[in-house]
Protein backbone atom coordinates (compact mmCIF):
# COMPACT_ATOMS: atom_id res chain seq x y z
CA UNK A 1 0.00 0.00 0.00
CA UNK A 2 1.42 3.39 -1.01
CA UNK A 3 1.74 6.21 1.50
CA UNK A 4 -0.96 8.12 -0.37
CA UNK A 5 -3.41 5.20 -0.20
CA UNK A 6 -2.55 4.58 3.45
CA UNK A 7 -3.14 8.25 4.24
CA UNK A 8 -6.53 8.16 2.50
CA UNK A 9 -7.45 5.01 4.41
CA UNK A 10 -6.58 6.80 7.63
CA UNK A 11 -8.65 9.80 6.62
CA UNK A 12 -11.60 7.50 5.99
CA UNK A 13 -11.66 6.81 9.72
CA UNK A 14 -12.47 10.43 10.43
CA UNK A 15 -16.19 10.96 10.71
CA UNK A 16 -16.25 14.69 11.44
CA UNK A 17 -18.92 16.83 9.86
CA UNK A 18 -16.43 19.06 8.03
CA UNK A 19 -15.48 16.01 5.99
CA UNK A 20 -19.13 15.49 5.05
CA UNK A 21 -19.36 19.15 3.94
CA UNK A 22 -16.23 18.70 1.79
CA UNK A 23 -17.76 15.66 0.14
CA UNK A 24 -21.02 17.51 -0.56
CA UNK A 25 -19.11 20.37 -2.18
CA UNK A 26 -17.18 17.87 -4.27
CA UNK A 27 -20.40 16.23 -5.44
CA UNK A 28 -21.94 19.63 -6.30
CA UNK A 29 -18.86 20.49 -8.34
CA UNK A 30 -19.19 17.25 -10.26
CA UNK A 31 -22.93 17.86 -10.80
CA UNK A 32 -22.14 21.08 -12.67
CA UNK A 33 -20.88 18.98 -15.52
CA UNK A 34 -24.11 16.98 -15.71
CA UNK A 35 -27.42 17.77 -17.40
CA UNK A 36 -30.79 16.28 -18.22
CA UNK A 37 -31.88 12.94 -16.77
CA UNK A 38 -28.49 12.12 -15.25
CA UNK A 39 -28.57 15.34 -13.23
CA UNK A 40 -32.17 14.73 -12.11
CA UNK A 41 -31.40 11.18 -11.00
CA UNK A 42 -28.33 12.20 -9.01
CA UNK A 43 -30.19 15.13 -7.46
CA UNK A 44 -33.05 12.86 -6.44
CA UNK A 45 -30.68 10.33 -4.87
CA UNK A 46 -28.87 13.04 -2.96
CA UNK A 47 -32.17 14.35 -1.61
CA UNK A 48 -33.04 10.80 -0.47
CA UNK A 49 -29.68 10.60 1.25
CA UNK A 50 -30.23 13.92 3.03
CA UNK A 51 -33.68 12.77 4.19
CA UNK A 52 -32.23 9.49 5.48
CA UNK A 53 -29.55 11.35 7.47
CA UNK A 54 -32.11 13.80 8.89
CA UNK A 55 -34.46 10.94 9.82
CA UNK A 56 -31.62 9.14 11.61
CA UNK A 57 -30.75 12.31 13.53
CA UNK A 58 -34.40 12.82 14.47
CA UNK A 59 -34.79 9.20 15.59
CA UNK A 60 -31.65 9.43 17.71
CA UNK A 61 -32.96 12.61 19.32
CA UNK A 62 -36.40 11.08 19.90
CA UNK A 63 -34.86 8.00 21.48
CA UNK A 64 -33.00 10.23 23.94
CA UNK A 65 -29.78 8.53 22.92
CA UNK A 66 -27.81 11.11 24.88
CA UNK A 67 -29.29 9.59 28.02
CA UNK A 68 -27.97 6.18 27.02
CA UNK A 69 -24.42 7.34 26.45
CA UNK A 70 -24.17 10.03 29.08
CA UNK A 71 -26.39 8.73 31.88
CA UNK A 72 -27.74 5.16 31.63
CA UNK A 73 -24.53 3.33 30.72
CA UNK A 74 -22.36 5.16 33.30
CA UNK A 75 -25.03 4.48 35.93
CA UNK A 76 -25.18 0.80 34.99
CA UNK A 77 -21.41 0.44 35.23
CA UNK A 78 -21.41 2.17 38.61
CA UNK A 79 -24.15 -0.18 39.80
CA UNK A 80 -22.19 -3.22 38.68
CA UNK A 81 -19.03 -1.91 40.36
CA UNK A 82 -21.09 -1.54 43.52
CA UNK A 83 -22.23 -5.19 43.22
CA UNK A 84 -18.60 -6.31 43.03
CA UNK A 85 -17.66 -4.19 46.06
CA UNK A 86 -20.66 -5.40 48.07
CA UNK A 87 -20.04 -9.10 47.38
CA UNK A 88 -16.36 -8.64 48.20
CA UNK A 89 -17.23 -7.01 51.50
CA UNK A 90 -19.71 -9.78 52.33
CA UNK A 91 -17.20 -12.46 51.39
CA UNK A 92 -14.55 -10.86 53.59
CA UNK A 93 -16.99 -10.90 56.52
CA UNK A 94 -17.75 -14.59 55.93
CA UNK A 95 -14.02 -15.33 55.74
CA UNK A 96 -13.37 -13.49 59.00
CA UNK A 97 -16.10 -15.51 60.73
CA UNK A 98 -14.59 -18.74 59.40
CA UNK A 99 -11.10 -17.80 60.58
CA UNK A 100 -12.52 -17.04 64.04
CA UNK A 101 -14.24 -20.45 64.13
CA UNK A 102 -11.00 -22.17 63.14
CA UNK A 103 -9.17 -20.43 66.00
CA UNK A 104 -11.90 -21.47 68.48
CA UNK A 105 -11.36 -25.17 67.80
CA UNK A 106 -7.62 -25.06 67.06
CA UNK A 107 -5.62 -27.46 69.22
CA UNK A 108 -8.57 -29.54 70.44
CA UNK A 109 -7.32 -32.51 68.45
CA UNK A 110 -10.70 -34.14 68.55
CA UNK A 111 -13.52 -35.04 66.21
CA UNK A 112 -15.22 -31.66 66.68
CA UNK A 113 -12.13 -29.79 65.47
CA UNK A 114 -11.97 -31.96 62.36
CA UNK A 115 -15.67 -31.49 61.64
CA UNK A 116 -15.52 -27.72 62.09
CA UNK A 117 -12.45 -27.46 59.83
CA UNK A 118 -14.19 -29.63 57.25
CA UNK A 119 -17.23 -27.35 57.20
CA UNK A 120 -15.09 -24.19 57.17
CA UNK A 121 -13.19 -25.57 54.18
CA UNK A 122 -16.49 -25.93 52.31
CA UNK A 123 -17.24 -22.28 53.04
CA UNK A 124 -13.80 -21.22 51.76
CA UNK A 125 -14.42 -23.19 48.57
CA UNK A 126 -17.81 -21.56 48.13
CA UNK A 127 -16.27 -18.12 48.65
CA UNK A 128 -14.30 -18.48 45.41
CA UNK A 129 -17.57 -17.42 43.74
CA UNK A 130 -16.65 -13.81 44.54
CA UNK A 131 -13.57 -13.95 42.36
CA UNK A 132 -15.42 -15.54 39.44
CA UNK A 133 -18.49 -13.29 39.61
CA UNK A 134 -16.24 -10.26 40.03
CA UNK A 135 -14.33 -11.11 36.86
CA UNK A 136 -17.54 -11.79 34.93
CA UNK A 137 -19.10 -8.49 36.03
CA UNK A 138 -15.94 -6.57 35.12
CA UNK A 139 -16.11 -8.06 31.63
CA UNK A 140 -19.70 -6.78 31.32
CA UNK A 141 -18.61 -3.35 32.61
CA UNK A 142 -15.88 -3.20 29.94
CA UNK A 143 -18.40 -4.04 27.22
CA UNK A 144 -20.78 -1.35 28.51
CA UNK A 145 -17.95 1.20 28.48
CA UNK A 146 -17.23 0.33 24.85
CA UNK A 147 -20.93 0.80 24.02
CA UNK A 148 -20.84 4.12 25.86
CA UNK A 149 -17.86 5.23 23.78
CA UNK A 150 -19.47 4.19 20.50
CA UNK A 151 -22.76 5.94 21.34
CA UNK A 152 -21.03 9.15 22.36
CA UNK A 153 -18.88 9.08 19.24
CA UNK A 154 -21.99 8.61 17.09
CA UNK A 155 -23.73 11.49 18.84
CA UNK A 156 -20.72 13.72 18.27
CA UNK A 157 -20.73 12.86 14.59
CA UNK A 158 -24.44 13.59 14.22
CA UNK A 159 -24.31 16.73 16.30
CA UNK A 160 -26.17 15.44 19.37
CA UNK A 161 -23.18 15.25 21.71
CA UNK A 162 -22.32 17.35 24.72
CA UNK A 163 -19.79 19.37 22.76
CA UNK A 164 -16.68 17.69 24.04
CA UNK A 165 -14.99 14.64 22.63
CA UNK A 166 -15.61 11.69 24.87
CA UNK A 167 -12.31 10.12 25.93
CA UNK A 168 -13.63 6.61 25.37
CA UNK A 169 -14.92 7.34 21.89
CA UNK A 170 -11.59 7.04 20.16
CA UNK A 171 -10.05 4.55 22.58
CA UNK A 172 -12.77 2.02 21.88
CA UNK A 173 -12.29 2.13 18.11
CA UNK A 174 -9.78 -0.69 18.00
CA UNK A 175 -8.35 -3.32 20.27
CA UNK A 176 -5.10 -1.83 21.54
CA UNK A 177 -4.30 -4.67 23.90
CA UNK A 178 -0.96 -6.46 23.67
CA UNK A 179 -0.82 -10.09 22.55
CA UNK A 180 -0.33 -11.08 26.22
CA UNK A 181 -3.40 -9.10 27.24
CA UNK A 182 -5.52 -10.66 24.50
CA UNK A 183 -5.01 -14.04 26.17
CA UNK A 184 -6.85 -12.85 29.27
CA UNK A 185 -10.51 -13.43 28.45
CA UNK A 186 -11.65 -15.65 31.31
CA UNK A 187 -13.81 -16.74 32.96
CA UNK A 188 -15.15 -18.55 29.94
CA UNK A 189 -18.81 -19.47 29.75
CA UNK A 190 -19.71 -23.18 29.97
CA UNK A 191 -19.23 -24.64 26.52
CA UNK A 192 -16.42 -22.24 25.66
CA UNK A 193 -14.02 -23.70 28.19
CA UNK A 194 -12.35 -26.99 28.98
CA UNK A 195 -12.74 -28.80 32.30
CA UNK A 196 -10.12 -29.54 34.96
CA UNK A 197 -10.07 -33.18 33.76
CA UNK A 198 -9.43 -32.07 30.18
CA UNK A 199 -6.67 -29.72 31.38
CA UNK A 200 -5.06 -32.60 33.27
CA UNK A 201 -5.15 -34.79 30.16
CA UNK A 202 -3.72 -31.95 28.06
CA UNK A 203 -0.82 -31.41 30.46
CA UNK A 204 -0.17 -35.15 30.68
CA UNK A 205 0.23 -35.18 26.89
CA UNK A 206 3.32 -32.96 26.99
Amino acid sequence: MSKDVAAKAGEAQQYDRSKVVQIVHSVIAKMEGLSGEALNNLSSELQDLVRAIENTRAELAAARTQDLGLKHVPTATDELDAVVDATKSATDSIMSACEAMEKMVAGRGDDIEQKVIGEVTKIYEACTFQDITGQRIRKVVNVLRQVEGKVNHLLETLGHGDGGEHPLAVASEKDTRSEEQKLMNGPQLPGNAISQDEIDKLLAGF
Binding site: I132, L183, G186, Q188, I199
Partner: peptide, 22 residues
Protein backbone atom coordinates in the same frame (compact mmCIF):
# COMPACT_ATOMS: atom_id res chain seq x y z
CA UNK B 1 -10.33 -18.76 35.31
CA UNK B 2 -8.57 -18.84 31.93
CA UNK B 3 -9.70 -22.27 30.85
CA UNK B 4 -9.11 -22.37 27.12
CA UNK B 5 -6.87 -24.99 25.56
CA UNK B 6 -4.68 -22.23 24.08
CA UNK B 7 -3.99 -20.84 27.55
CA UNK B 8 -3.07 -24.21 29.03
CA UNK B 9 -0.67 -24.95 26.15
CA UNK B 10 1.02 -21.54 26.41
CA UNK B 11 1.40 -21.93 30.17
CA UNK B 12 2.93 -25.37 29.74
CA UNK B 13 5.31 -24.10 27.08
CA UNK B 14 6.36 -21.33 29.46
CA UNK B 15 7.22 -23.91 32.13
CA UNK B 16 4.16 -24.23 34.37
CA UNK B 17 4.14 -27.34 36.55
CA UNK B 18 0.40 -27.62 36.99
CA UNK B 19 -2.80 -25.78 36.18
CA UNK B 20 -5.94 -25.37 38.29
CA UNK B 21 -9.08 -23.88 36.84
CA UNK B 22 -11.27 -21.70 39.05
Amino acid sequence: AESKTENVILAKQAGVNNYIVK
